[in-house]
């Protein structure tokens, strides 16, 4: 095929335009986070302040409760991601491979849980958690997040298991494996891309969740970072510089996390499993 230079250029330009639009808010976040307070309103709209500073970062790290929020968020998002992925892998495998009674109803129930706007559920959930002492606690948040993410993650994992030929585990069972060993040694390694996707998806969802965090947590000790960001809004002013600096810092774990799992996300491991 002969390449058409014009089309190639247009193609690249379109991608560039998309990237610029998508990344511009992030750039603005960065720009504001390094703008000294005295220049924030005085310089008009500029792409970069005439003088950059890291004072917001040092303040956020050294003098605010931000490190606590950060730690809480890591605990909550990390635990939720791991718990959801384990549960969803097992449930997804069962839905994909086993025939059992009430399967239809279990799937239907799981879908129903996804139908309600979360706002509706805040009050009942608060009512349920408070006698258990799980409000204002990270454990409570983890439980709620896990419960809300398991259905979708289960369907996600099920579709990954569906994509793995049944022949493979049957071959393993004939080779001498139990169903569980076949699951662990043959199926699970082939599902790593799915597991990575689920981990990533749940981690980011839990990392940025605001509604339940706001409603179930009061006070700074158990606050996660999205709630913590609101502490930069005081009665009379918003400290944009510090807020943005905190925002930039909060992006780091999500980025690291995706760097860690991207190897699995792009891998098409099942290629070559069956006839080709």
């Amino acid at each position: 095929m002969r390449s058409k230079p014009f089309l190639t250029v247009a193609h690249r330009l379109a991608i560039l335009a998309y990237i610029v639009v998508a990344l511009f808010p992030l750039f603005w976040l960065l720009k504001v986070s390094v703008t000294p307070n005295d220049l924030l309103y005085s310089e008009g709209v500029r792409m970069w302040p005439s003088r950059a500073t890291f004072e917001h970062y040092t303040f956020v790290i050294a003098h605010s409760a931000f490190p606590t929020f950060f730690k809480n968020s890591l605990i909550v998002a990390g635990s939720t991601a791991v718990a959801v992925t384990i549960l969803a892998s097992l449930a997804g495998y069962a839905l994909s491979r086993f025939r059992f009674r009430a399967k239809y109803w279990i799937v239907a129930l799981m879908l129903i849980t996804q139908m309600f706007p979360l706002v509706m559920l805040v009050a009942p959930i608060f009512k349920m958690l408070s006698p258990l002492g799980l409000t204002n606690s990270l454990t409570g948040l983890i439980i709620v997040y896990t419960a809300f993410n398991v259905p979708f993650a289960t369907f996600l994992m099920q579709s990954f298991f569906d994509g793995i030929p049944k022949d493979l585990e049957e071959a393993a069972m004939i080779d001498g494996a139990t169903q569980f060993v076949a699951f662990r040694q043959i199926i699970l390694p082939l599902t790593l891309p799915g597991i990575a996707a689920t981990l990533g998806f749940v981690f980011t969802a839990a990392w940025s969740e605001l509604l339940f965090a706001l409603m179930l947590i009061s006070g700074n000790d158990a606050a996660t970072f999205p709630v913590g960001l609101l502490t930069f809004v005081s009665k009379f002013s918003v400290d944009f510089g510090q807020m943005m600096a905190a925002g930039i810092l909060a992006l780091i774990p999500a980025c690291l996390f995706f760097l860690l799992i991207q190897r699995y996300l792009v891998q098409g491991l099942t290629a070559g499993a069956v006839k080709g």
Binding site: P165, L168, L190, A271, G272, V274, K275
Partner: peptide, 11 residues
């Protein structure tokens, strides 16, 4: 058993 699809373990 030899399967029609071969069912080799891809990893």
């Amino acid at each position: 058993m030899v399967f029609q699809s071969y069912a080799l373990y891809p990893h």
